[in-house]
Design a protein around this nucleic acid. Structure first.
Lengths: 346, 346
DNA sequence: CTGTTAGCGCCTTCAA
DNA sequence: TTGAAGGCGCTAACAG
């Protein structure tokens, strides 16, 4: 079934059908209704490919994910997909598979760039109208993406040069909230297990945490910092450092769940009780950490939301060529479980 | 840049360029090389949309996933995507989001069918050449999919009516292997926590397990069955049943990780030690269960493989209209961790 | 307000 | 072995 046949059935020209379908051109209300009636009856829908060829718009967006098996990706995808579909866009998926290809070495920029270029070429061939780039590690990706003639939105990462639009989440406020939560449970000596030094989110989580503690009257002298690199093992290592301390914090905020669990695991192996002996808070709300004992109190990143907002931003960009905000920042939410105890009177 | 321009640059007709590019028609080797040279130099690649319009082939496949946030989906997607891309196909993603929409009630067939129909229509409009349907729950989906004029391959589910091609995994052999593993660790009294009764995989895991035990000389009288429904809570419930037994199994095979962890959790809460007091084996190798204490011995389902094989099957189907096997069954692998102890002499 | 028509970029038949 | 030309289904400029 094509437009010509519909036109014949309706006794009008193909142009009329096109007008009716797209709401363009001039056409009498009566005819429009008649045509749409027939369209509906026949279950006709225009050939998207022909339309694309003609209009140079594919109504398709590409989602490039750094690694689909990474914990954030599915939820981000979910958000993007839902919004895009609701708005008549088809979603093409491209998985760079970075975890396997370059391992944890997220700074192998050159290698990344080659892989990425290939993916971009695929999108180019598919003639997508826009691209969402979803990272598996919140970091600066400027210099990674080639300059591109179609709109790109970054999700779960950012671009120091501010050349790209991006959608990310707030590290500072939630870290403050954690500090206040711990203080509210009467912890006076607290620790923090940091992510990689160079990481912006790590820096923000640090400063937010400290700020929150100060607001609660906890002196920076009563804050112990442990170095870490986001990995499980560095959580274990932090526990070994912790153990050597003479004055020990009663609660530790690990900048991500993996380190939190590493710390917990080491503590439990050492015969400590959590949260009685030491309280711990994570960050990420990873599925992987769902069944720890005790259940880990942590932070949920608004991943679906980020997906949705990036799709929204991208669609606006496609339509208008520009958007108000270059950067959208969404709030995280605190997930209270069982790994923090209240300190009784001293 | 289009074919006409390339033709002009090469001093030939557009037809010649098309022949050269596609290896069709008759053209002298010399000309072919010359043309390809120019194509390469100019970085030209044919317009896929125009090509699709003309050939009625979109070189695109649709992947419909029941829920992208389900634990199996990303790995399956990964496998499909990789294979499809390698073979010049673009992948369109459609997420039904069943977990949210219909919850755990996987038998709300009618509702599913409506959601599914919408997704199929999207694929139809996008004119995909074929579809992979990836379930989030291994079950019979016959009656769910509408009859379709384009090839469909089912992944991680099956079709009792054998009308559809499907790619799945082997439950029986691996369950036998588990039985033998437990017997090899000198367990003489063992248990099994079952999945939903109506489930085929549950039945197979059961029979495989029993068969394996028998082969090791363990009498069915020494096998305790606990009912379950795949959920965490039914694992806990199984522990309560277990506790009431006078003669107790020393090892339990839970048909999935969730129930295994539920059982473990209840046992640990009850002051039992795992694996010293009771050994446990799960099934699924879910990320969610990665950090239990002790680490859970379980079964890994070949998800990437299933993705890859379903894509492969689909592409063959697209090319030839049919394939040798209606059903591909892949082996699972045993993942040994820490939740099974060896029984010392009696 | 309505209809005719020229392409979008490509493939493929057919004639040379 | 080569090239001219028609047409896939649609949109939009233009003529009526």
């Amino acid at each position: 079934m094509n437009m010509k046949e519909i036109a014949e059935l309706a006794g009008v020209s193909v142009a009329a059908v096109s007008y009716a379908l797209n709401g363009t051109g001039n056409i009498s209300e009566k005819k429009r209704k008649e045509i749409l009636e027939i369209v509906k009856k026949e279950g006709y829908s225009p050939n998207r490919i022909a339309k694309s060829l003609r209009t140079k718009k594919s109504s398709t967006i590409g989602i490039m994910v750094e690694d689909i098996t990474s914990f954030q990706t599915p939820r981000i995808l979910n958000g993007i997909n839902e919004y895009a579909e609701k708005n008549g866009y088809t979603v093409i998926l491209n998985n760079l598979g970075l975890l396997k290809k370059t391992g944890k070495n997220i700074d192998a920029v050159c290698e990344h760039r080659d892989i990425l270029k290939k993916g971009m070429e695929l999108f180019e061939k598919a003639q997508v109208d826009g691209i969402v780039y979803a990272s598996h590690h919140d970091r600066d990706v400027s210099g990674l993406l080639p300059q591109f003639h179609i709109p790109v939105v970054l999700a779960y990462c950012y671009d120091m040069t501010h050349q790209n639009y991006c959608v990310t989440y707030d590290n500072t406020d939630i870290s403050k909230e954690i500090a206040k939560y711990l203080a509210g449970h009467h912890h006076k000596d607290v620790g923090i297990i940091c992510g990689a030094d160079s990481s912006r989110p790590a820096q923000k989580r640090y400063s937010g945490y400290i700020e929150g503690l100060e607001e609660c009257g906890i002196d920076p002298e009563h804050v112990w910092s442990f170095t870490g690199d986001w990995e499980f093992e560095s959580g274990e290592a932090a526990y070994r450092q912790y153990k050597r301390l003479r004055v020990k914090p009663t609660a530790v905020f690990a900048m991500n769940d993996l380190m939190a669990v590493g710390f917990m695991d080491a503590a439990l192996n050492d015969g400590k009780k959590i949260p009685e002996d030491i309280s711990i808070v994570g960050f990420d709300n990873r599925q992987e950490c769902r069944f720890t004992r005790p259940r880990l109190t942590t932070v949920d990143i608004p991943l679906e939301q980020m997906g949705k907002e990036s799709a929204k931003l991208l669609l606006n960009l496609i339509k208008d060529g520009e958007a108000d905000d270059r950067k959208i920042i969404l709030p995280c939410s605190f997930v209270e479980k069982e790994s923090v105890a209240t300190i009784e009177s001293k």
